[in-house]
Design a protein around this nucleic acid. Structure first.
Lengths: 350, 350
DNA sequence: CTACAGCATTAGAGCGCTCCAACCAATAGA
DNA sequence: TCTATTGGTTGGAGCGCTCTAATGCTGTAG
């Protein structure tokens, strides 16, 4: 249970502790003879350097802290993949902690991460107040993903939610839809831009926006649809605030005896793995998640290396993924463009 | 960018460094006068202890390392919740790293975690070779979740896959099914016990097992169904190796014009959030995931405190969650018990 | 033969903290 | 009065490492 130290390796290899240190850091100014001797001794002892002692002594860190607001959401997993890719390339390790979307727990996670004195911090869609982020940013470089900030020492990486919503609306309009409702994400992250983009795109096409208050869950999506039906206000197409909401909406539509996409088209947002399931086959808006991670890590490492001081604000372009839940509205089926429909869902139409 | 040290706090509070240390660790042998003075100085300076220096000096760690094999899988998120809950209760922090189901990356993640010299390590469904785990276990306490081990210094927490499969078979048998196929998970973790449990349960009921080779993905589930249909060997019920596979199977069945559950019943495994979606409403086997995490953390902390040396092998009981994808077989609908059907899917039957 | 590079190697201080032993009142007991 | 005792406080060593400056050791030029 007790790990060997540099001293042990030095003793065994018959050299000084400092020499072992040089070998471990891959210094070129070590003779081949000693180098192999040290490596052999280290191997035999099962030695590996103590990251904390190293970081303490060198007053530097090769660790990037990553705070994932919600581990349950696979969205973040792909962002982490992107971060990990870049970090590893540049010789950095990452440590992850999670806040479970609770501000208190997230704050604790932040403290914990900070106590390791990492070189920098990436926060994925954090829910802690901006002041807490600002405070952290006084101690080390901080990059925010899927959350904006006005602090000039903090870099941000976001998707252009307005553009994403516009893409969805234009897809539906091109199919011939005129009555398109938006199931709104309420207080949720990024709900604002999506709503604004939806409203702007509708108005740009001379259509009347219909924003229905909802949330980022499938239950909320179903509820919104039921209330639309009850009010006799069901449109021919739905733009949900995210994929979960969309799937709930589809369920409620089917429960009411309506067919998707023949009677009502539905578009999600996020392109989660859920949307890609053939059973769901949801038309949705994709965000370049791994790219989020890569850009965030790049931005962070630039700050770590002090190559840049002015803030960076990445706003990435989302893209439309057409699957089986969108089609021309029932009234104009004959004339509209069928090519937009994905063939994988065709078989369910008969 | 430079954090204050204990020295700074001591100076400002007019006391010694050692006294600050005592206050920070909540020692009772500090006068109220000094305590408040120190806390005030710390507050003003924005001081918080340096976890690494502390751990280095005390030769102990209050950190538990958690290696998540796959961050994309929400299964692990709930296990982490359980771990976090117990760890926090007992004053431990956790740091997470991920291996992305690649042995090489996982090995690196392990090294990285180890370099922080945590008090112990929890590995969630690791794919690294057993020798690598054994090596880690020589340095610190290790607990495995969703993977078994024969090493006596390693504790394990698993679900009883045989029992889970048996529950599923018995549910289907009680509905009147006689021809039940198992879409097998192949090399996947835990596929073996599930297969064995299925075969044993079938034989116990005097039925003929039908194991179809498949994988843990929805595409594989769909493929297996198509091959069953092509071979004219489609049974009245399907037990999938996991929920994704089951959803793929349902899709393929619907594509072939068959209705679930009227024509074919489908049972999944894992009770992922996917299964709970009303649009999917999958009958499945639930594993107590948060409990996995709690037990793993408990076992680990026992080892950390050296309260136990003999290994612990938790084998938790899974449970059946009946939703809308199972019903009596078409041929015996009149006589079988309808109560097992979930009402939430009833509306789709007409 | 001395001087001086130039290179490989090492001693020693110090990173921010903990922990032990020592210390210093102040009070209690003899 | 002197010695214990107690509770609060402190100096200093040391955790495993890095880093600077100094050292020893060639080999080559003067």
């Amino acid at each position: 249970m007790v790990r060997p130290t540099m001293e042990d390796v030095a003793l065994r290899a018959g050299v000084s502790r400092a020499l072992v240190s040089l070998v471990m850091r891959g210094s070129p100014k070590v003779s081949e003879l000693r180098r192999t001797a040290v490596l052999k001794a280290a191997e035999e002892l099962g030695y590996s350097p103590h990251a904390m002692a190293r970081s303490l002594a060198s007053r530097t860190s090769t660790v990037l802290g990553v705070m994932v607001s919600d581990l349950h959401n696979a969205f973040f997993a792909e962002v982490v993949d992107g971060i990990d890719e870049v970090a590893r390339e540049q010789g950095f390790d990452i440590i992850i902690n999670t806040g479970g979307r609770s501000p208190a727990r997230e704050r604790r996670a932040l403290e914990s991460l900070l106590s390791f004195r990492p070189a920098g911090l990436i926060l994925l869609s954090p829910v802690v107040p901006a002041t807490a982020i600002g405070k952290a940013a006084e101690q080390l470089p901080v990059v925010l993903v899927a959350r904006s900030s006005r602090v000039s020492t903090v870099d941000t990486v976001n998707d252009d939610g307005e553009q994403g919503a516009r893409l969805a609306v234009e897809h539906l309009v091109s199919l011939g839809h005129k009555r398109i409702a938006h199931l709104d994400g309420g207080e949720g992250t990024q709900a604002g831009p999506r709503r604004r983009g939806y409203v702007a795109a509708m108005e740009a096409h001379g259509l009347v926006p219909q924003v229905v208050s909802s949330e980022y869950t499938d239950a909320a999506g179903a509820r919104a649809i039921r209330s639309l039906i009850a009010d006799d206000a069901l449109p021919t197409a739905i733009l949900s605030c995210n994929d979960f909401n969309a799937v709930g909406a589809i369920s409620a539509l089917e429960d009411a005896g309506l067919r998707v996409p023949q009677d009502v088209s539905v578009v999600g947002y996020d392109n989660t793995s859920l949307a890609a399931l053939r059973h769901v086959s949801l038309t949705t808006i994709d965000q370049p998640r791994a790219e989020f991670g890569r850009l965030a890590a790049d931005a962070l490492l630039q700050r770590v290396r002090e190559e840049r001081t002015e803030p960076v604000r990445h706003l990435l372009n989302p893209s439309l993924v057409v699957r089986g839940t969108t089609a021309p509205p029932a009234t104009s089926r004959r004339t509209a463009d069928f090519k937009a429909k994905s063939p994988e869902r065709q078989s369910r139409d008969q």
